[in-house]
Amino acid sequence: MANSDYKTIVKDGLWDNNGVFSMLLGMCPAMAMTTSATNGFGMGLATAVVMAASSWLVAIFRNRITTEVRIPVYILIVAAMVTVVDLGMNAWMHELYKVLGLFIPLIVSNCLPLARLEAFAAKQPPVSALLDGLFMGLGFTIALTAIGAVREIIGSGTLFADASLLLGPTFKVIEMRLLPADMGVLMMILPPGGFIVTGLLVVVKRLLDLRAGKEIQMTGAHAV
């Protein structure tokens, strides 16, 4: 029984209930940090680490946290994890840290981790919670990388530019130039592009779900 449960958690996190494309949570970094695929990837991974760690911690203490003070406690746990990631990235991935800047501390106020803590980790055993946090985070990473890739390809014609600089020299191989430099549509890199690409990618996800014979979700997690 546990096995199929874990499978659902993984599938929900990565695709069915994807934080960005289905639940429409965590939109701020999903648009602000996706001017390139590399930035989106880095931001997504940082969020995934925070989500996995805080889900696990909340699940451990779930019987001790009373309902009245649960939100402050959750936020403090997330804030502590974010501080750890913040300092860690500053030390070991300084280039990426400089690019992501403001949005690393802002993981605290990302709705996605808090929503998962409230909806999932508060009621589940630590292992499931850890998995849920991890895969929700990875789903988030996939979404951010996808948005970033589309914006980067159309906007500046490259894909994963600067990956070696930001993530480490091993990532040199994935740097690509798909279009000549002067073909870029600047609008895609600027704020409006973020909104439009995200909107279109939600449509793409619905289309794929429809192809697979699934009901498409007409609304996000909150009644839109």
Binding site: L190, P192, I196
Partner: peptide
């Protein structure tokens, strides 16, 4: 139908962002 709800809202928001530029 595919655009109903959030996607069209995002696209409208994109246009609003352009206007604010």
């Amino acid at each position: 139908r595919l655009f109903a709800g959030p996607p069209i809202a995002f696209i409208v928001a994109g246009m609003l962002a352009m206007a604010f530029m």
